[in-house]
Design a protein around this nucleic acid. Structure first.
Length: 346
DNA sequence: TCCACTATCACTTTTGAAGCGC
DNA sequence: AGCGCTTCAAAAGTGATAGTGG
């Protein structure tokens, strides 16, 4: 088994010094055609299950290539196993314990809605939260084993991108990545049974474009493509740790300082509770416009001009300009117990 | 001129302290 | 004192927008 230096893996303040790790040694199965550069390729589930083939669209080819690239490094990507008919319900086998770990992304449908139009995530100086955020459940870990859950963001392309003709076009080589440390869920370490009975949430992770050292804030380059990777770290005997990694394809996004695609903005407004103020533009326009018009009419009155133009006359144009949003993407959040990350430590 | 980026705005939800009754 | 509930102001998160600067 391979070893890795825990110092390289954890954030400095989270390092448990001196621990060595060995990667889980999942059943060695190759992702067929994953390096294909053709418009579409397929990834067959390798455990003989009846799951249908996962069709990978052209937009996903790049991510698959990333998986392939990583497989030749030390992160064990080639050993990733797709055993579910839903790509965000990923399982990895661990022969040593004759079992597997499954990671199931919550709100996966929402993630896919964004992926369909091309997910964009705002990054800024102080750090912007992700929306949708990463929340998942875990199954199949040793109930009494001690685990850490790690959140990380990795590049999903070697290119940088430009938004042209309503599409993201790959342009030159991407910038060298900022140094980011994987972020350990603050509840770590916990025993497997604890992790498995709750949702695991990284709701408050933030993205920035200014380098910093604060835990839970990732510094990214604008106009470059990234995806989220979750790692499950098991504390073994003899001061060793085992790691299994889940790069989540559905979370692929482009970092931006302002939204480029209007469809993305619409989706955000109609699915993020904090954006509720923008769901009914009439309300805002009404408020602002009424103020302006009031002012205007006061001036007219003071000029002893007759009120030729009523408030509603002025508003008429605005009302017609308001787009109808056909989307009903209201997300119902269950009041289940969660392992929410309640913000970066001070 | 272009466009990535920033500060500010008006809106929202979340948070946490204070007050209250039992 | 402790608990559970409500209230409310402050804090924090949101996209829009106008302005800046390379």
């Amino acid at each position: 088994s391979r070893t890795m230096d825990a110092k390289m893996f954890f954030q400095p303040n989270n390092v448990e010094n001196g621990k060595q790790s060995k990667l889980f040694n999942p059943k060695r199965e190759k992702m067929q055609n994953s390096v294909s550069s053709s418009a579409t390729s397929s990834i067959s589930p390798s455990n003989g299950s009846s799951s249908p083939e996962l069709e990978v669209q052209s937009s996903d080819t790049e991510v698959c290539q990333m998986y392939a690239n990583f497989s030749s490094s030390s992160s064990g990507y080639s050993e990733m196993q797709w055993s579910s008919d839903f790509p965000d319900d990923e399982t990895k086998c661990i022969p040593q314990i004759n079992g597997s770990i499954t990671l199931s992304l919550m709100e996966a449908k929402l993630w896919y809605k964004f992926l369909e139009v091309g997910t964009e995530m705002i990054i800024n100086r102080t750090g912007r939260r992700m929306f949708p955020y990463v929340e998942f459940t875990l199954r199949g870990v040793d109930p009494v084993g001690l685990y850490d859950v790690i959140f990380d963001i990795i590049p999903a392309s070697s290119k940088s991108f430009k938004f042209m003709n309503n599409k993201w076009i790959p342009i030159g080589r991407k910038e060298e990545e900022f140094k980011n440390y994987p972020f350990k869920h603050p509840d770590s370490p916990r025993i497997g049974s604890d992790w498995m009975t709750r949702k695991i949430s990284f709701e408050k992770v933030k993205l920035s474009n200014k380098p910093g050292t604060q835990a839970g804030i990732f510094t990214l380059h604008t106009l470059q493509k990234y995806l989220v990777r979750i790692s499950i770290v098991k504390h073994e005997q003899d001061d060793e740790i085992s790691v299994v990694e889940f790069p989540i394809r559905a979370t692929t996004f482009i970092a931006v300082t302002a939204y480029n695609n209007r469809e993305v903005t619409k989706l955000k407004i109609y699915s993020n509770p904090y954006s509720k103020g923008f769901r009914f533009p009439m309300k805002r326009i009404k408020h602002q416009t009424f103020q302006k018009i009031e002012h205007k009419e006061q001036r007219l009155m003071s000029m002893k001009d007759s009120v030729k133009h009523s408030v509603f006359y002025h508003l008429k144009g605005d009302v017609q300009a308001i787009p109808q949003c056909p989307l009903d993407l209201s997300t119902h959040k269950e009041n289940t117990q969660t392992n929410d990350y309640k913000g970066a430590p001070d």
